[in-house]
Design a protein around this nucleic acid. Sequence first.
DNA 1: AGCAAATCAAGTCAACCGTATCGGAATGGG
DNA 2: CCCATTCCGATACGGTTGACTTGATTTGCT
Lengths: 216, 216
Amino acid sequence: MGCPGQYGYIGKVSSQRTRGVGAAHDERQHQIVDAVLALIGEQGLDGISLRDVATKAGVSLGRVQHYFRTKDQMLRAAFERVNDLGAALVGQRLADAGDSSPRTVIRAIATELLPIDDLHRHALQVGMAFTARALVADDFAARLKAGYGELHNLLVLLLTTARDAGDTRPDLDIDHEARLLLSLIDGLSTHTLIGHHTPDTALAVVDTCLDRVFTS
Amino acid sequence: MGCPGQYGYIGKVSSQRTRGVGAAHDERQHQIVDAVLALIGEQGLDGISLRDVATKAGVSLGRVQHYFRTKDQMLRAAFERVNDLGAALVGQRLADAGDSSPRTVIRAIATELLPIDDLHRHALQVGMAFTARALVADDFAARLKAGYGELHNLLVLLLTTARDAGDTRPDLDIDHEARLLLSLIDGLSTHTLIGHHTPDTALAVVDTCLDRVFTS
DNA sequence: AGCAAATCAAGTCAACCGTATCGGAATGGG
DNA sequence: CCCATTCCGATACGGTTGACTTGATTTGCT
């Protein structure tokens, strides 16, 4: 889970080179999904047609249909991909952080979940499109919930570490605190996307909140 | 602004009874828009067709098209209506609150912005659908921004009152605090809609946050 | 009463959609 | 070399969509 480039929607596990050209299978699938994500960022999740995707990817409609038997499968693959991409970004941040303080790590994660540049803005925009769809598609909601669950567990781990090190009040309700942080970051992200405040302000608000959690 | 029953999309200001049947004009328009909102809650913003709306409202397609020349106008009217409805709900809460303490009022507002029952859940679900659309439609974003701006100003006012009364730390950064609260509530609302936590948990998190803002 | 505007059901249309099908090219194992 | 398999471009089809047109009916004002 969370390994980029591995989506199981075709039944096999990864690049297999069984028959035919086979070799560049994943790469071409990848290219189509990227076109889908780009279009979602431009026009939203709906209003996307298979023909638009084909044009954007620079391939024929037939090819798109070859890799995704239905439109639903295609969108599902795009959803998986944006989830994997997000997980990869956060994972990279975690790896880079090394043994920094919990507060530093949490702030780094927050930075990764805010639209601080065009790349993040686009990814979050796509994420919000899928979130809106999750409200009427239960399986999408389940996947999203799992993702938030992972982030929640990560925050719980970090906060526990901090508390044990004496960097927070000893009676800190860690579960509530993790929910608060994650919800706050998500809300700030949405409001920043809308333009209600700037990325800088959003980060400052995160810092304000962290000031109140950490004692050191 | 925010007065329910008054939408300016037809050019006149309110019920005018100029010619023809005239009298029930607003009422019928209202009925159609309500069908739109119901459908958005069921299937999302897209995937809605004029024929679906007509069926849901129990009227003919011709009637729908008579009151809204284009689909875009219809959706825009629905957007205005859900905004007005939300403003009315918050306004009612404010009126009911009378001269309660700022903390109580803020908590009441938060309650109104969380999916605590089916009515609120549906309204917030519709709101999120429009928020997703606002990411690719600038005018929708502008309207949303204005709404958040009003809520922000309201929170600033309440927090200032509390600070002047000595119920908060005197050096409280009110602007940041208002942004924090509003973003938190919005994030909690989204996460609750997804099912990441329950309305009760969300309210408890709000209380946790308020505990940290108010000293009394 | 009579006129004009408002109302609105029904039908039509062109555009676009997702999907299915077909035919052939490319490919690599046997 | 051969053939099964993958790949994929081209084309077509049935269905739905938003928009438009038409004509009948209703309503309020004079």
